[in-house]
C-alpha cells in the first residue's frame, strides 16, 4: 500500500472485532455494503492538496492549561459507582482479567 493512497475496502469482521462490537450476520452483511460505499466516497480526499499542510487536531490553536494541584473533596464517588451494573463500597465490581490458577 502506498502511504498516501486511501484503501477502498473495509474488512467489517476484523474491524468490528477491534471495536469490540459483536455483529449479527444480518448487520455484518448490511454494514459491509454501506461502509464500502462510505469508504468509497471518502476517496475524494485524495484530491485535496495537502502537501506541506499542517494537520489540525483541534480547531484553532490550543494551549496547554495548568491549574493548581490541590486536592478537593468529591461528593460524587458513591453516586458514580452506583451507576455501574455491579458495585460495592463505592467501587466498580468487574470480572477477573487474569487467570487465578
Amino acid at each position: 500500500m502506498r502511504e498516501r493512497e486511501l484503501v477502498r475496502k473495509i474488512d467489517v469482521d476484523y474491524v468490528s472485532e477491534l471495536a469490540r462490537v459483536e455483529l449479527t450476520a444480518d448487520e455484518r452483511r448490511r454494514f459491509q455494503a454501506q461502509l464500502d460505499q462510505i469508504v468509497g466516497y471518502m476517496q475524494v480526499l485524495e484530491e485535496a492538496p495537502t502537501q506541506g499542510v499542517e494537520p489540525s487536531p483541534y480547531p484553532g490553536t490550543m494551549h496547554n492549561v495548568w491549574r493548581s494541584d490541590t486536592a478537593q473533596p468529591s461528593r460524587m464517588r458513591a453516586e458514580a459507582a452506583a451507576n455501574a451494573p455491579r458495585w460495592r463500597n463505592s467501587l466498580f465490581v468487574v470480572p477477573p482479567i487474569m487467570d487465578q490458577t
Binding site: 500500500m1 484503501v7 473495509i10 468490528s16 454494514f31 461502509l35 480526499l45 485535496a48 489540525s56
Partner: peptide, 24 residues
C-alpha cells in the same frame, strides 16, 4: 466501526492524518 477503521494500523495516515490536514 468506521472510526476504528480510520484509526487502525496501516490506515491512520491515509484517513485520520489526511483528514486533519484537509481540516486545515
Amino acid at each position: 466501526i468506521l472510526g476504528t477503521y480510520a484509526l487502525s494500523s496501516g490506515y491512520y495516515d491515509a484517513y485520520y492524518l489526511k483528514a486533519l490536514k484537509v481540516r486545515t
